Amino acid sequence: MKCYFVDAFAEKVFEGNPAAVCILEKWPSDNLMQLIAKENNLSETAFAVKTGEKYHLRWFTPGGEIDLCGHATLATAFVLANFYTKEAKQWIFQTLSGDLTVLKKGELFEMDFPSRMPAKIDISNNIINALGVTPVVAYLARDLMLVLEDENNVLQATPSFTALKEIEDGVGVILTAKSNQFDFVSRAFFPKLNVNEDPVCGSAHCQLIPYWSEKLNKTEMVARHLSERGGTLYCKLDGERVRISGYAVLYSVAELQLGADY
């Protein structure tokens, strides 16, 4: 089985968020896909099988399958564009979050994702204790989103991953703040999925974009992820959808040696 390793939301290797991508003719077992994701030990490994004019796309973290992933979707489109469908400029993926379209615009890949405006919730002591700083306000959609006072608080945050894992609300925990250089910044943590910090989380922007669009009174924004690797996302609110664009670069191509048992 061929596996491509791609840095998404990156303009050069060792930036952005690495994802593994396998383009297949038929589905392996769920157990095998999960074992591969654990072995790769990246935040996401994507598996895609062509079905008619579309591709059925699934994402696995080391801790299990997930319903939506931005950077691995971008990485999958990048692999298709460079190795499988070189003349194509659009790909439609069938996923647990419905059909997702990716357009190639020059060297940028633009993803069309659902908008998930988060709902305001109370800030619990568990949140404060896990984070080590008191958020200005807390919101919840798929993930728990915590707005901090400024971008330095986001950059310097040292949350307890064990404590974050015990918070009942949300799959992941997103920290965000308004930025001086960009429109907004963020970091994302998914200890419940055995990913302590996601280097760049595209799906988190499904709720970040509508929130900051309302706060900043603008529909087009540039966001920066403040993980150690870092990554830039070009964002647009489009009604009930969000458009998230980024660059990607190839790091490696591997042949998985699975043996006769698989």
Results as ranks from 00 to 15, higher is better:
H71I: 12
E65R: 10
N31C: 00
L57C: 09
R58E: 04
A77H: 11
P62N: 09
A37I: 09
L68E: 04
C3V: 15
I36L: 12
T51M: 14
P28M: 04
A75R: 00
A10H: 06
A46F: 09
E65K: 12
F9G: 03
T45L: 06
I36K: 07
W27M: 12
F60K: 03
K38Y: 06
S29W: 04
F47M: 07
K50V: 05
K26W: 00
M33Y: 02
I23C: 00
Y4L: 10
E65A: 12
A77R: 12
C3R: 10
D30V: 03
L24G: 01
Y4V: 11
R58M: 09
G70H: 08
F78S: 06
M33H: 03
T76Y: 02
C69S: 10
E15K: 15
G64S: 08
G52V: 07
W59G: 04
F5I: 15
I36D: 02
G64D: 10
P18V: 10
T61V: 09
A37C: 11
N17Q: 04
A75C: 02
P18C: 09
L32G: 03
L42P: 05
T61E: 09
A10G: 07
A77P: 11
H56K: 15
I23F: 00
V49N: 10
E11P: 10
T73W: 01
K54T: 13
L35F: 00
S29C: 08
P28E: 03
S43C: 13
L68I: 12
G70A: 10
T45K: 06
